[in-house]
Nucleic acid binder design. Structure first.
Length: 327
RNA sequence: CUCCCUGUGGUCUAGCGGCUACGAUGCCUCCCUGUAGAGGAGGAGACGCACGUUCGAGUCGUGCCGGGGAGACCA
């Protein structure tokens, strides 16, 4: 797989292809980032962007993980003490999951976001951005919550972070694209360069197959799930025997294979009783999806296999969590 | 600071002084399918808080709290 392909595989949107191609041409030492609001437990949504970070490291890039403590504070997630504690747990889980420690820089937002230069640039952004624009960009504002001033400052800081962390590339889920577009429009006005972005897909809800609602509610796989939890959650997942269900629905089981399993494993072994045809082995997601579509692979067997591989992915993080919680 | 509107299960919602508070959706359980969904059968879950009026208040009044809107101030 060439570098451009490695950088852009499994992403929904590349902004822009040309700019990312320039990075792919010479990835060594280039810096990419994802910002996360600290969370004590990583869930499958965090892991999707983490997979992309692993790809980027494999390509030779450096990765910056922003532990966005100030953002979390602005979003009402607690005191700084509480936020920092969950941030440390998050860091441990990312490393356990497979981020290369030697190529990963973890940065707290509060390390630089309170400094004068940053704050003055932030005020300049506030001056040049309309309220409605900032509010639309605020992906974190879910449901019918009423916007606070903090909520509109939030995305402006995200835009500014991309400059202050000295990045070459911004990574985030599709839910972050409005923030990134705001960044691309506004940074030049402050005399900074707009950076390219990669947007990962948002995986459909596991039980309904309804798409695109990030991590808000519903069943999700997380680092604190036991093997039995994962089996149970995967087993109850929506999974029609097709890659393209009716309407706007997606097949979450296939999505998890595509975005989480195949990128991390050389091949996938489906253990199956002789009665149903015996074991199957896949080295490509496409082959597995095609077999599910044709009926060669039954959804029940796909689910059992998915649970096994997800469990293997989660296991190190789960162990790390257990260790943290014992202290 | 003042005034107006608003507050029922997770979400949306009926109720308009009177039996164990309607319904939808979501959620949980079971049946049915070699998965899930769909379908069928069950189940848990609510009147923001406090006084007061009344024989009796989700339903009326007052206050507080929360949400929305407007006005005043022009420093």
């Amino acid at each position: 797989m060439d570098t451009q392909e490695l950088l852009t595989r499994n992403v929904d949107e590349v902004v822009t292809e040309e700019e990312v191609a320039a990075i792919a041409a010479d990835p060594a030492g280039k810096r990419a980032y994802v910002g996360y609001e600290p969370s004590g437990v990583l869930h499958i949504g965090h892991l999707l962007t983490a997979n992309k970070l692993i790809d980027l490291q494999e390509a030779g890039m450096e990765v910056v993980v922003l532990l966005a403590d100030v953002h979390a504070y602005l979003n009402g997630k607690g005191t700084f003490e509480e936020i920092r504690e969950t941030a440390e747990q998050m860091r441990a889980q990312f490393l356990a999951y497979g981020l290369d420690e030697s190529k990963t820089e973890f940065v707290y937002g509060s390390e630089y976001q309170l400094e004068e230069d940053y704050v003055l640039d932030l005020h300049e952004l506030e001056l040049s951005t309309t309220l409605s624009r900032a509010q639309r960009a605020m992906a974190e504002l879910q449901g019918g919550e009423t916007a606070k001033v903090s909520h509109v400052v939030y995305p402006l800081m995200q835009a500014l972070d991309i400059e202050y962390l000295d990045l070459d590339l911004a990574v985030g889920g599709m839910d972050q694209r409005k923030v990134h577009m705001l960044m691309r429009e506004e940074l030049p006005g402050l005399g900074y360069e707009a950076r390219p972005c990669l947007h990962t897909p948002i995986v459909a809800d596991l039980t309904t197959g309804e798409g695109k609602m990030s991590s808000s509610e519903g069943v999700t796989i997380s680092m604190e799930d036991s093997t039995a939890d994962i089996e149970s959650k995967v087993n109850s997942a929506f999974c029609p025997p097709t890659r393209d269900p009716e309407g706007d629905l997606e097949n979450p089981v296939l999505e998890l294979f595509e975005y989480h399993v195949f990128p991390r494993f050389e091949s996938v072994l489906v253990e199956r009783p002789e009665k149903y045809g015996g074991d199957l082995e896949y080295s490509e997601y496409e082959d597995l999806a095609a077999d599910l579509e044709s009926g060669e692979l039954h959804p029940a067997d796909a689910k059992g296999t998915l649970a096994t591989y997800l469990d293997e992915l989660i296991a190190p993080g789960r162990a790390a969590l257990r260790e943290i919680r014992q202290d």
